[in-house]
Amino acid sequence: MSPIVKLTDVHKYFGTYKVLEGVTFEVPRGGVAAIIGQSGSGKSTALRCINALEAIQGGTIDVCGHAIQDPELNRRALRCDVGMVFQSYNLFPHLTVEQNIMLAPTCVKLMRKPQARDLAHQVLAQVGLAEKAEHYPEQLSGGQQQRVAIARSLAMKPKLMLFDEVTSALDPQLTGEVLKVMEELARGGMTMILVTHEMAFARKVASQVIYMHKGTVWETGSGTMLDSPRTAELRSFVNNGL
């Protein structure tokens, strides 16, 4: 099957500082790729490049048929196909949960308010927060806010979801409820790329684990790769329980 995301020899600099040095990997439709690696190894940058939030200086990225390196790239069309969830939730604080979710469908897809509201309730039910529609973000726990952020992305019916350390700001219990939502998404066939420190989750849910080190894909394989690392770097990374 043709991949939904394909990175080929991607190079990325911040000024003269090289962050990505020839990153290559692909994720098939319905695949779940977990990117792991030390802090500073370029995981977030790779994810941001996939969503054209950063420009790349070399190589190619193809996302659902959009060529990210193309100067003529239609960013808004790309973002209709790609959902992204951040560590800091980034909900809009002045809007209710429901309004947060309805904003993009009404603005971008010109959906009528009643339909958008139905959609909001539908995706909220999917993340187990149907009763919080009228609440404001600040009235929710971190885990609930993150689930709303996921629901907000889902409302745009993306073909691909990107998650950047979405549980890193949460305590273990709240982490669990967010991971559960993500696991259900994966089981439902959503193509996902997630940067994570949750090794157990990567092992269990990911169809593909990508270990990044010094701006390159150092080692890649299935979840079992974490049990028998080939490289010394991955071995020490796994053993340090990072």
Binding site: R79, F86, N90, F92, L103, V108, M156
Partner: peptide
């Protein structure tokens, strides 16, 4: 990050 989140929603 607020603008970025909105950008990611295709606004």
């Amino acid at each position: 990050s607020q603008m970025e989140a909105a950008e990611c929603l295709a606004l």
